[in-house]
Amino acid sequence: KTYTFRVRIVDEETGEEKEIEVTAKSEEEAKKAAEELKKKYPNLKVELE
C-alpha cells in the first residue's frame, strides 16, 4: 500500500505557492521526504497535508 501526500511549498521570497505530490510507503517516509525538501530549499515553507 502506498500513501500519496500533498506537500504545499511556499517560496518565502516570491510568495509563490506550489503543490507537489509525494508518494510514500508510510507517513514516516513522507515526513522524511518533506524534511529533505526543507534541506534542499531552505527558504521554502514546506507543509505536509
Rank of each mutant, 00 (worst) to 15 (best):
L37G: 01
L48R: 05
E17T: 13
S26V: 01
F5M: 05
T23V: 13
E21K: 08
K32F: 09
T14S: 07
E49W: 05
A30Y: 06
I20P: 00
F5Y: 11
E35I: 09
Y41Q: 03
I20C: 11
K31C: 09
V7D: 00
L44N: 05
E29Y: 03
K39M: 09
I9E: 00
L37Q: 02
V22M: 08
K45W: 07
L44K: 09
E27C: 15
K39F: 08
K18Y: 15
N43D: 07
S26T: 13
E47T: 14
I9T: 03
V7P: 00
K25V: 13
I9L: 13
T14G: 02
E49H: 12
E28H: 08
T23I: 13
S26Y: 02
K40G: 04
K25Q: 13
Y41L: 04
K40C: 10
E47D: 09
D11F: 03
A34Y: 15
Y3W: 10
V46T: 04
K1C: 14
T4S: 09
K31P: 01
K32W: 11
K32A: 13
P42C: 06
R6E: 02
L48N: 05
A33H: 09
V22L: 12
E47W: 14
K32M: 12
L48I: 13
E16I: 08
E35N: 08
E29S: 04
A34Q: 07
G15A: 02
T23D: 04
L37E: 02
E17L: 11
L48V: 12
Y3E: 05
E36F: 09
S26F: 02
A24V: 12
Y3D: 02
I9M: 08
K32D: 07
A33K: 14
K31T: 07
E27F: 15
K18C: 15
N43C: 07
K18A: 07
E21C: 12
D11A: 01
E13P: 01
A24R: 04
E47C: 10
E49K: 05
K40W: 07
T14R: 02
K31M: 13
K18F: 15
E16A: 07
K31A: 09
P42A: 04
E21H: 11
E19V: 15
D11S: 03
E19P: 01
R8M: 09
E17P: 03
E17D: 04
E28L: 10
A34P: 01
P42Q: 05
T2Q: 10
L48H: 06
E13G: 05
K32P: 00
E19W: 15
T14N: 04
K32T: 09
V7Q: 00
A33L: 13
E47M: 13
K38A: 12
R6M: 13
V46L: 07
L44T: 05
E49Y: 08
K31D: 04
T2P: 07
E21T: 13
V7W: 03
S26L: 01
K18R: 14
E21R: 07
V46M: 06
E12I: 13
R6H: 10
K1R: 11
V7N: 00
K45Q: 08
A33E: 06
A30G: 04
Y3C: 06
E28W: 10
K38R: 14
E16C: 13
K38S: 11
V46G: 04
V10R: 12
F5Q: 01
K40D: 04
Y3Q: 05
Y41H: 05
L37F: 07
K31E: 08
E17K: 05
E28P: 04
Y3P: 03
E19F: 15
T23G: 03
E12M: 14
K25A: 14
K1H: 08
A30W: 08
E13M: 10
K45A: 06
K32R: 12
G15T: 01
E17I: 15
A24P: 00
A30E: 00
L44G: 05
E27N: 05
K39P: 02
V46A: 04
A34V: 15
K25Y: 14
L37P: 00
E16S: 05
N43L: 08
Y3L: 08
G15Y: 01
E35L: 11
T2K: 11
A34S: 05
E12R: 09
K31S: 07
A24C: 14
K25E: 13
L48K: 04
R6F: 13
N43A: 07
A24F: 14
E36I: 08
T23W: 13
E21Q: 10
E13K: 12
K38M: 14
E47Q: 11
T23N: 07
P42E: 03
L44M: 13
F5H: 01
A34I: 15
K18G: 04
K39Q: 11
R8T: 13
V7S: 00
L48M: 08
Y41S: 02
T2E: 12
K32N: 11
R8I: 15
E19S: 13
E47L: 13
V10D: 01
V46D: 03
G15L: 03
A30C: 08
K45T: 11
E29P: 00
L48S: 06
I20Y: 09
R8A: 04
E29H: 05
E19K: 06
K32Q: 11
P42F: 04
E12D: 08
T2W: 14
Y41P: 03
Y3K: 05
E16H: 05
Y41T: 02
E49S: 12
E35M: 11
